[in-house]
Amino acid sequence: MNSSKVYSLLLLFFLIFSFCSKKDNEEEIIVVEPTEKIYFPSITTNTWETITPEDLQWNLNKIEDLKTFLSEKNTKSFIVLYNGKIVIEEYFNNHTSTSNWYWASAGKTLTSTLSGIAQDENLLNIHDKVSDYLGTGWTSATLEKENLITCKNLLSMTAGLDDSLGDDVSADNLKYVADAGTRWAYHNVYVKMQEVVAKASNTTWTNYFNTKLRDKIGMNGVWTDIGSLNVYWSTTRSMARFGLLISANGKWENTQIVSENFINEATNTSQNINNSYGYFWWLNGKPNYHLPQSQAQFNGELIPNAPADLFCALGKNDQKIYVVPSKKIVIIRMGEAAENVNFALSNFDNDLWEKMNDVIE
Rank of each mutant, 00 (worst) to 15 (best):
N2W: 01
S3Q: 13
K5I: 14
L11G: 02
L11Y: 04
L12M: 08
F19S: 07
D24C: 03
I29L: 14
K37W: 01
S42Y: 06
T45M: 10
T45H: 12
W48D: 03
E49C: 05
E49K: 14
D55G: 15
W58G: 10
K62Q: 11
E64L: 13
S71T: 07
K73Q: 11
V80Y: 13
L81M: 09
F92H: 05
N94R: 09
S97V: 15
Y102W: 06
A104G: 01
L114N: 15
S115L: 06
G116F: 05
E121Q: 15
E121N: 15
Y133N: 08
G137Q: 10
G137Y: 12
W138K: 03
L143T: 03
K145W: 07
C151F: 02
T158M: 07
A159D: 09
L165V: 07
S170I: 12
D179N: 12
A180Y: 07
T182M: 01
T182Y: 01
A185W: 00
Y186L: 01
N188H: 06
V191P: 00
E195C: 06
T203Y: 03
N207C: 04
F209V: 04
T211A: 12
R214L: 03
R214G: 01
N220C: 08
N220M: 09
N220V: 06
W223Q: 11
T224K: 13
N230C: 10
R237M: 11
R237I: 07
N249Y: 13
W252N: 04
S259Q: 11
Q271I: 10
S276G: 09
G278A: 09
G278R: 05
W281V: 04
W281P: 03
W282D: 11
L283M: 04
N284P: 14
H290C: 15
Q295I: 08
Q295R: 08
P307K: 07
D309N: 07
L310S: 00
L314Q: 06
K328R: 11
I332G: 00
R333N: 11
E336H: 13
E339L: 05
F348N: 02
N350F: 02
D351C: 02
W353F: 07
